[in-house]
Design a protein around this nucleic acid. Structure first.
Lengths: 137, 137
DNA sequence: GTTTTTTGCTTTCTCCAGGAAAGGATTTAA
DNA sequence: TTAAATCCTTTCCTGGAGAAAGCAAAAAAC
């Protein structure tokens, strides 16, 4: 489905999706149009889901990152998932196996906001919090 | 530093950074050029760190997502951080407070690859694994 | 209170990236 | 052996983005 050239193109797009097709073409030895065709194909296939911007969260009052493990105390997962989907502080949310039911990545402004968030989580379950004190990657 | 219009623009870019400046302008009631100026400003400020592509990891043989908590047994954090930076399976890595030293988000092809990864981690520390069994967000 | 500077916008103009269409080469299917 | 499909290149054209100039309002200086 995807050949090596496609993967190279994806890698380039990942580092900068605004890179010009012609420049990508020079790297992978194709014309810009051929690159364009391949990208369209990957968009249609669903391999490429979208294009987005990388923001400096620190500058946007999202200086505090935490990983939160949720231990549900109710069985109402649907409502909880709804809550997660709608909450702007929740960056990622996965149902997990192993200890706990969900793993969340949360980004907020301050300790206070984190407290507020945890309060609102308490309705659904208990939690374990791991606050990021440094981003490696 | 950033006003409400900037935040609106960022939100739009986050959903689709290839959106045309004129179309963004229509939403925030500005001309395309004004939008362009604001975006350039935010790029220079460092609020916008880059533009990237959202991929369907499942289609790229990255079907297995796991959150891994690392409990270091050596003090050689530098080498470990190096290892994390260079490892393609590691999507995120944060130094954390609370239980454990690092929280990793890892995406691999198979249980086998996860095993291999964990083996290579063992040099540095012990781990707790939480495998994602469903992505909410 | 008036002048000067700065800031942020719009308008205009130009250039080039990207998309469409056509044609060719190679592979796959009939 | 022919027909179809795939994937590429070349050519052409449109329209988006960037640059420059000009304007208006706010901020700073006097």
């Amino acid at each position: 489905m995807l050949d090596n050239t496609d993967l190279k193109i994806l890698k380039l797009l990942k580092s900068n999706c605004k890179m010009q097709f012609r420049d990508i073409g020079e790297v992978v030895h194709l014309t810009g149009q051929a690159v364009s065709n391949r990208i369209s194909r990957m968009e249609n296939l669903g391999v490429i889901k979208g294009y987005t911007v990388l923001l400096d969260e620190k500058m946007l009052n999202k200086s505090l990152t935490a990983y939160i493990t949720i231990f549900m105390k109710t069985t109402n997962h649907e409502v909880f998932c709804e809550f997660l989907s709608n909450n702007e502080s929740v960056m990622e949310a996965n149902r997990i196996s192993g200890e706990g039911c969900y793993m969340l990545k949360v980004q907020v402004n301050s300790q206070e906001d984190l407290n507020d968030f945890l309060d609102s989580v308490l309705k659904y379950g208990n939690y374990r919090v791991n606050i990021s004190i440094g981003k490696i990657k």
